[in-house]
Write a protein that binds this DNA or RNA. Structure first.
Lengths: 208, 208
DNA sequence: GTCTATACACTGATAGAC
DNA sequence: GTCTATCAGTGTATAGAC
């Protein structure tokens, strides 16, 4: 399907996704979305009625595309170390392809935490039940076997995800302060992180 | 100085700080700031002329209070492990007292990265020169001595700060998905993190 | 310095022709 | 389905009295 053949709804959706991700809900403008989609404002409301409903459609889709990736690896039967290794590499790669998504999700979730409730029973619930519980069991087994040091699975999962996501959320300050604003240095930093974070975490929990 | 004796400028400033931190620049309303300060809108403009200037005053102050804390520990002469240990505990404690500041700074810095340039030569520059360079040297020395594994100081500092900050930025999703929305569990999680993060990092880099 | 009243621009949303 | 025109509401900012 070429750009010209896309349905108007898709045009609007993609334009809105860009605008909302760049500016956030409060900063986004319906006029700007219409401009990006090369249509007029009235048509936005014809398809999605309100800005809020349009935003909801975007947020749900982005969230549902982004979160389940966590599961693909977490619920596999591979050994814990392998799981972690594969997760980190694929997750950082995923974020590198969509570097503004984490800030977008976290900021909008903070603006309206109740949004999570609407996602429960759907993605959030699945992440917890099929993803985290499974991960949690695997961690506790390894602790019992003595292959990793004692650690709460909740602390470990937050450490893993935080180490993957933080460099993107904190990009302006990292690139600005640590790398003197040099984009290339920052990009190299990200690239080498895929292996560095894995090494770091394995070191932190492995019993040697 | 009691609440009544505070200058109008301070009243405005504190009201604006709350509003901006809660809603961000785009979401904040001058009317709401006036209401919080128990004055009228016109007076806001009398003291700060524009919303932008008022915001700048807030952001600068918050940033300058929050960032230098990183230095207090980083530039000390204590051994690296002690530095890290003291930093993590005091930094997580500081954020627990101001849990919304990290999201605020990172979001607004993302909205307008050029803001950092204005802070350069001031705080950002100091953080880099006196804080990071000093830290970087200490790390490389320990690597040479063989007490820690080889690691780029840039990776290590981002890991340390990320592990401290991320639980606060990701609060809605962590509390919602991992702790079923239970605030108490989340608070306990934060509390134990002060020691858990330290252990985690020392484990990750120490040669045993 | 502080207030009330108001100007002025912009935003989300709708009406109605085609 | 798509457009132009327009409304009602809200937001920042200013004028002017006290």
């Amino acid at each position: 399907m070429t750009e010209q053949e896309k349905s108007t709804e898709d045009l609007i959706f993609n334009a809105a996704r860009e605008e909302f991700i760049e500016k956030g809900f409060d900063g986004a403008r319906m006029q700007e979305i219409a401009k990006r989609a090369s249509i007029n404002k009235a048509l936005l409301h014809y398809y999605f009625r309100t800005k809020e409903k349009l935003f909801d459609a975007i947020f749900d889709k982005v969230f549902k595309i982004f979160m389940p990736k966590v599961l693909d690896v977490m619920q596999s039967d591979a050994p814990l170390f392998t799981k972690i290794e594969v997760f980190i590499e694929s997750y950082i790669r995923l974020i590198m392809e969509n570097p503004h998504i984490p800030s977008f999700i976290l900021h909008e979730l903070n603006r309206n935490p109740d949004r999570l409730v609407g996602l429960f029973g759907n993605v959030a619930g699945i992440v917890k039940e099929k993803g985290f519980s499974r991960f949690s069991e695997a961690v506790n087994e390894e602790i019992k076997k003595g292959t990793i040091v004692p650690i709460q699975p909740e602390q470990l999962i937050v450490n893993i995800i935080g180490l993957c996501i933080f460099p993107f959320i904190g990009r302006p300050i990292i690139q600005g302060v640590i790398f003197n604003g040099d984009k290339l240095q920052y990009d190299n930093f990200l690239e080498s992180r895929k292996k560095e974070v894995t090494k770091f975490i394995i070191n932190a929990i492995a019993v040697k």
